[in-house]
Each structure stands twice: as structure tokens, then as C-alpha cells.
Simulated scan of single mutants.
Amino acid sequence: METSTTSSRAFLAGEAGEAAPLGTLERGLYLLGLFSTERPEWTLRELREESQLPKATVRRLMLTLERLGWVEQDVAGNYALGPRMLQSLYAKTSASVLVSEARPYLERLAQSTTESALLSVWGHEGTLSLDLVTTERHFKPFTSAGMVVHGLMSADAKVLVAFAPEMLWDARYASLSQAMPAGVTVDSMRAKWREVRAAGVAFDNEEWKPGVCAVAAPVLGADGFVLASISLVIPSERGGKQELERYAAAVRDAAAALSRVHIERNQALGMTPDDGDSQG
């Protein structure tokens, strides 16, 4: 009996060695479809063996996908999905339960502070902005829903790493080490992430972008690990110590309230922490 995998491989190979008119597109999509939460990384050899496509074909397709941002290759030669995939998935993500649940909290946070409120999750090269509520103030954040904020220095990135399982810290630093400011090491970042965990909040004092400050807090799942971050993004002229402390309290309260609502909803539906809810 022919399995679906065997059928897919035969389809990719084409009939009598001839590719269908859309063969290149179909084969590229097939390779992208191999990436999953259970198998987020593949080497070129593994992709070739799984697809049974010629080595030259797999190499050419992966080079094209990498050039266009659909996949990325690390220094060890492992491929993973790239930022273009995250951005394309925004339309799906924006309709998710978490985004719907978070929207009222973002709106209330923006209204009470008169600053822009942002919801983010961890992406492959930094944070992925899921939703943004702005105010009538002149200042607008240098981000938008669906945008990947690269690096580890933003308030959201600090929170999303700090409250992820500690076993992931070194890997997340390594994946973005080339973009780190001079003098910032993995040890100094690990110390910073521990400070963020202890404080329950992270600050960005123009570290991501000059003229922009931010404060972020984690939205946690029932397992205690991070699902997302809520932040306020503000201009540096309103980012004094007293203002940031006031904003921190508001952000922390909003994130904690959203965490409770999300956990209670999942419990009511019979979901557990093992259902893959957290960003860890």
C-alpha cells in the first residue's frame, strides 16, 4: 500500500523524470512543509534524504528560499524558517485567541498611560509584533503589527528570553550575537535576564533605537513560561526614571491580568501546559 509520504515523494520526482510546469514551486513548498515544531531544523543532507530529490535541486531551492528570507541557515549548517515566514503568518497569528484576548488590555493600557501599547512574541531573529494600539500623541513607535524587531536589546526581547526556559538562553544569544553591541557578552546577558526575571519587567533605554524607550512585562502560561510580552513604547523625553517606574507598574498589572485570563480559559477548555502554549 502506498503511503502519503511515498506518494508525495513520487509526485515531487515527477513522471518519467519530467517536472510539471509548477514543479519548482511545488518542490520548494514541500521542503518548507517539512519544518515543524517537532522538527524545526534540517540539514541539507537530511532534506535531500527526506525528499529524495537530487542534491543539486535541494541546494538550489534552499539557496533561493534563503535569499528570499523564507529560511535561514546557521553557522552549523542547519536550516530553520526565516523572518519572511513569520511575517506571512501574521495574518493567521493576528486572529489567534491570545491576540483577541490581549486587545482590550492593550487598549486600556494605552488609554490609561496615553502611550502606545504593543503585544509581541519571540520570532527567529528577535520579536514579532502581533498587535499595536497607538494614541493621539504625536509620537508613534518605529514598529507595526507583523514586523520583526531584530536583536536582543529591546524590552520585549529581554522579557521573552528571560522568561523562556533557561536552557534556551545561550542558543538565543548565539543566534543573534553578531548584532550585539560591543562589550555585551553571553554572561552579561544572562545576568541581565536573571535581573529581568527577578523584577518581572524589562526596560529599554534607547538600546534598540535612539530616541525610543520601552518597558515590557511577560504574559505567562500555566507552566510559568512566557507566552508573549506586553510593552509600552515611549519617546526618550518621557522616559525618565519616575515615568518608567509608573509605566512599569501599569504594564506589569496588564500582563498579569492577561496571563490569568488566558490560563483560566485554557483550563476551562481542558488544555494543559504540555499543549504547546508557551514560547519556550
Rank of each mutant, 00 (worst) to 15 (best):
E207T: 05
L61W: 02
K192L: 13
L232M: 03
H124M: 08
M153E: 15
L258K: 02
S88A: 13
T143P: 00
S229Q: 03
V212C: 01
A19F: 09
V161R: 13
L53V: 08
G23A: 10
A256H: 08
G183M: 12
Y30C: 07
L89Y: 08
V219F: 03
K209Q: 14
Q111K: 15
E49T: 14
A16E: 10
S96W: 08
D204V: 03
L119P: 03
E26M: 13
K192V: 06
V159L: 03
T143H: 05
E107P: 04
H138F: 08
T143Y: 07
S120Q: 15
P21W: 11
G23I: 06
A102N: 08
G28I: 00
A256L: 06
E46Y: 06
D274Y: 11
A202W: 02
V133D: 01
R197L: 07
A179T: 09
A228Q: 01
L220C: 05
Q87G: 11
A217E: 02
L29G: 03
W42Q: 06
A191P: 02
D156C: 08
R9Q: 15
G280K: 14
V99L: 03
A268N: 05
G28T: 00
V161N: 13
G151M: 07
L12D: 07
A110I: 10
A157D: 02
A179Q: 13
L168K: 08
M271I: 09
G123Q: 08
Q242L: 10
T64M: 12
M271E: 13
G14F: 10
